[in-house]
Measured scan of single mutants.
Amino acid sequence: MEVRTIKVFTTVDNINLHTQVVDMSMTYGQQFGPTYLDGADVTKIKPHNSHEGKTFYVLPNDDTLRVEAFEYYHTTDPSFLGRYMSALNHTKKWKYPQVNGLTSIKWADNNCYLATALLTLQQIELKFNPPALQDAYYRARAGEAANFCALILAYCNKTVGELGDVRETMSYLFQHANLDSCKRVLNVVCKTCGQQQTTLKGVEAVMYMGTLSYEQFKKGVQIPCTCGKQATKYLVQQESPFVMMSAPPAQYELKHGTFTCASEYTGNYQCGHYKHITSKETLYCIDGALLTKSSEYKGPITDVFYKENSYTTTIK
């Protein structure tokens, strides 16, 4: 009895394709271990004539594949690729409408935090270190965002349907971005203890939790000093293409032309909904596939993004 075979390709990165001759009487799992086709788990399936010449994702289970996976995804987590594939199996079914010149995501599976993050990423200057993220990001900007969303979920250790947080998501993504040249110098002034300067680099240099107003941050924000008295913390120097200011959701007025974009969060910790506000020729609110415009805006804002380049204080 002759062994019926077909020729397929296996890959971990969709760049390096490895030619395989597979036995049609055995499952993919018996031949390769966990195997995925377009995100779908085909591990328990036997090869079919229609699979001839198709590319299958496999887990990096030998040295060659491990090197290829690390170079593309910059992670050695053995569960990463499987999590990416199972997320992709959902995100490829989502709709990605162009809204006001940006790629958004039609609401499904509690994905409003991903839509808000995706919209924000198209408006701030950011370059990702893992080629996987950078490639998928370019495709997302062009309207094909399924891979990018699935990668975000995998890097953030999230599953489809789980509630997510924009600030946490951005923080994970910033860790995989090139923020080497970003720098922030802060000064804390206390009447009792004097003053202390701190220099922050990388992710810490672009994120701040405690106030939404970048102007206020430049002037000074009140913080408790270690001595128990009130101290003032203010920005001395900022070198970065953008800054992200966050605070627990509270009524906040966004003035046209003073910011790049913002995240609105309605609801409580267990259950809520994100919308995205962007400042173009007027203010726009993007909620999944829905767009509304207004000249002014007041609502429960939790993150505001500002364009920056270089700032030095005039406070002496």
Rank of each mutant, 00 (worst) to 15 (best):
H51E: 11
T260K: 00
A177F: 01
S86R: 13
K93H: 14
L151K: 06
A69I: 07
A177R: 03
D135M: 09
D23Q: 13
L151W: 02
N129Q: 00
N100R: 11
T313M: 13
L163K: 07
S279R: 02
A177Y: 02
A262C: 03
K106H: 13
T19H: 11
N89K: 14
S263F: 01
E168V: 06
Y155H: 00
H51M: 07
K229V: 06
K7P: 11
Y265H: 05
Q122L: 04
A146F: 01
L254V: 02
L118H: 00
L291D: 00
K44S: 13
Q238Y: 05
A132S: 07
M245H: 01
E162C: 04
A136R: 04
G267E: 05
E68G: 05
H176Y: 13
G82S: 13
K275E: 05
A289W: 04
Q122G: 06
A262Y: 01
L65R: 09
D135N: 10
C285L: 09
V243M: 01
L179E: 01
I15Q: 14
G220F: 02
Q238G: 01
P224T: 15
P34I: 12
T159E: 15
C227Q: 02
P300C: 12
L37A: 12
T103L: 06
Q175E: 08
L290H: 15
P60S: 08
E264N: 01
A177L: 01
K219H: 08
F80M: 02
I152E: 01
E204W: 06
N14P: 14
D180T: 10
K316Q: 15
V67G: 15
N147T: 10
T292P: 00
R184K: 01
I15D: 00
Y172G: 14
V236Q: 01
E264T: 03
G29P: 07
G220C: 01
S213E: 05
A146I: 07
L17E: 10
I301W: 06
L81M: 13
E253M: 11
Q238A: 02
G161N: 03
E204K: 14
E2K: 15
V99D: 00
K316W: 15
K93M: 14
T43Y: 09
N16Y: 09
K316S: 15
E125V: 03
T199G: 00
Y57A: 07
A40T: 13
H273S: 01
Y84P: 03
L133V: 03
S295Y: 13
T10W: 05
D77H: 07
K54P: 03
D62G: 12
G53I: 01
Y137H: 08
A142E: 15
F32I: 14
N49W: 09
A140S: 06
L65N: 10
D63N: 11
R141M: 12
P130Q: 04
F217D: 02
A136M: 07
L290S: 13
A108L: 07
